[in-house]
Simulated assay, not measured.
Amino acid sequence: MAAYLTRRLLSILLVLLGITVVTFFLAQVIPIDPAVAALGENAREEQIAEFRARYGLDRPLPEQYLRYLGRLLQGDLGRSLRTGRPVAEDLAEFFPATLELALAAFLVALLLGLPAGVLASLYPNRAPDLAVRLGALVLGSTPVFFVAILLLDLLHRRLGLFPGPGRLDPFLIPPPRVTGVVSLDALLARDLTAFLDALWHLVLPALVLGSVYAALLARMVRAAMLDVLAQDYVRTAWAKGAGPARVVLGHALKNAALPILTLLGSLLGGLLSGAVLTETIFSWPGLGRYVTQSATSLDFPAVMGVTLLVGVVYSLLNLLVDLLYAWVDPRIRYA
């Protein structure tokens, strides 16, 4: 196992190195001068030259890349052209909001998609199955921004059941920042009012984002379960009089877990990469809004920093899923 982990970690480093090469040189293909984009078209030549010299943009491309790589090895992701702050500080500020929303949406997707997929597989081509397939089709084909606007209008503006955009009521004093996750910071500060308000603000965006992923998960769980339920050992378990819970949970769902785990890893990776539309509509200050604003202002250091972070997240999640394979299926061994 140690040798396998070493190889995987080395491969992750190679992947991240490839990401830096691709993103750096693709950024140079864009026919727009980042100095002009940052300073404006009315900037004087002296200002543009000073800006390029300050950020090393007047150096040859290979030298720029090597200098960037050298700083990266020291943990320096560069300085954002838009905010003027180190990119690492920006990521530390915006990523916790995305993490909070991603975990909540992932929980919603699990609670909705997993039982729905199992239920549909137990009643193939009957009413529960048709209802789940229809619901998954509608949710999966509806744009997320439409679902977000619809629920905001209905549940917030018309019925007043949920708060509006934002992470916290503007009249509440935010808890001291410790982790950047507002609900957790409020809990650490023992501020029950802020904690409950943060959770209440989290429900609607998590429901919007999680329901879309729940549709995909339900379809995958249904397909995997139907394949396993048709196996001889499952029919034997039914014939021996095993209860539904033992057959479904102990035999069928456990043996259908491998493709489901793969999908769950991809879903969580996608959520942690930032949900641009959901974060924008709900004024959620996360990674999706940050990278969108950085890309539109040609803030290359920020875009490259976010790309590296997403690469790390996906790589580590893939490694975690592979390790869970061995836990779920003892026949899998890593050497």
Results as ranks from 00 to 15, higher is better:
G140K: 03
T296D: 07
A109F: 07
A256Y: 01
F162C: 09
A239I: 00
A43V: 01
A223K: 04
A35P: 08
T142R: 14
Q64R: 15
W238A: 14
Q74R: 04
L216D: 09
T142L: 11
E279P: 06
R333H: 15
L168V: 00
V221L: 01
V36P: 04
L261C: 03
A120L: 09
S273G: 15
S297Q: 08
E45C: 13
F195D: 03
T20L: 12
A257D: 04
A242T: 03
G56M: 03
L150D: 06
G117R: 07
G180P: 05
I281F: 15
V29R: 15
I19H: 09
L154A: 11
A194N: 00
T296V: 07
R167V: 01
S283N: 05
R235M: 05
L13G: 15
T280L: 11
A109Y: 02
P285T: 07
V312E: 03
Y325S: 06
L26H: 09
F145L: 10
G210F: 05
A302V: 00
F195Y: 10
Y314I: 01
T98H: 10
D90M: 14
G274T: 02
M220W: 00
S283R: 08
L217H: 03
V181N: 11
G75E: 11
A275P: 13
A131E: 12
L272I: 12
T83G: 05
A245I: 10
Y55W: 01
L202P: 02
L13S: 11
D153R: 13
T292I: 11
